[in-house]
Design a binder for these strands. Structure first.
Lengths: 104, 104
DNA sequence: CGTGGTGAGTTCATAATCTGAACTTGCTGG
DNA sequence: CCAGCAAGTTCAGATTATGAACTCACCACG
């Protein structure tokens, strides 16, 4: 009925958007994403897999012998960046008013 | 670090955005939201409560004796609409490719 | 007046999901 | 050979969501 439901079905969980954000930053290593997002390894692994399955993320092997993969945004994933930008803008405006003003 | 995490902390669950979407449509009755989103009553109730707590949604009592409440978007909630719009656009472009082209 | 229906929630037991920690696998460094 | 990093996976346990049924309160009906 409305793309929102479809969108949320793909990226509507707690870590997908965070992971996508990291990918948008150019962070493509599993451990880095895991640390930056705070997601549990298992959850992140599953999420990355879903995202790859949805075509939002692409997995590139940057080392053969030790199986080292790197994740990249696909076209579809990159298209999500504007939405993420809006979300971030909103978050900074409404969800983090605590850090406005003097430090602490 | 980034507003996205904060934003997701508030609206990053499965039903929040859907509920917000309904509110954006002007649908403010509990049952209507529940039916339109498909969210379980209990989940929706909890979510609406969180959203109200976060200041994204306002509860207006439109009937006293039979406790009938109606939900409205606040300023903060309305500010989320652009993000929802982006998300919807993305969803229609990438998350619902099944309806592209001839049926079947 | 008693019955049934609508609307908004709540409660409860169950089920699914997520979480953290430890474990693998494969190679590199000492 | 042993330790360590990197990417995942596995496992048991904790959290949370889910659906169905139930409550309250009123309104309409016969």
């Amino acid at each position: 009925m409305c793309g929102i439901a479809d969108a949320l079905a793909l990226v509507g969980d707690r870590w997908a958007l965070l992971a996508l954000r990291e990918l948008g930053f150019g962070v493509g290593r599993f451990n880095d994403i895991q640390v930056n997002t705070g997601a549990p390894r298992a959850s992140l692994s599953a999420r990355l897999r879903s995202l790859e399955d949805c075509g939002l993320v692409e997995r590139r092997r940057y080392s053969e012998h030790p199986p080292r993969d790197e994740y990249l945004l696909t076209d579809a994933g990159r298209d999500l960046m504007p939405a993420l930008g809006e979300l971030r803008a909103w978050g900074e405006k409404h969800a983090s008013p605590r850090v406005r003003g003097t430090s602490s």
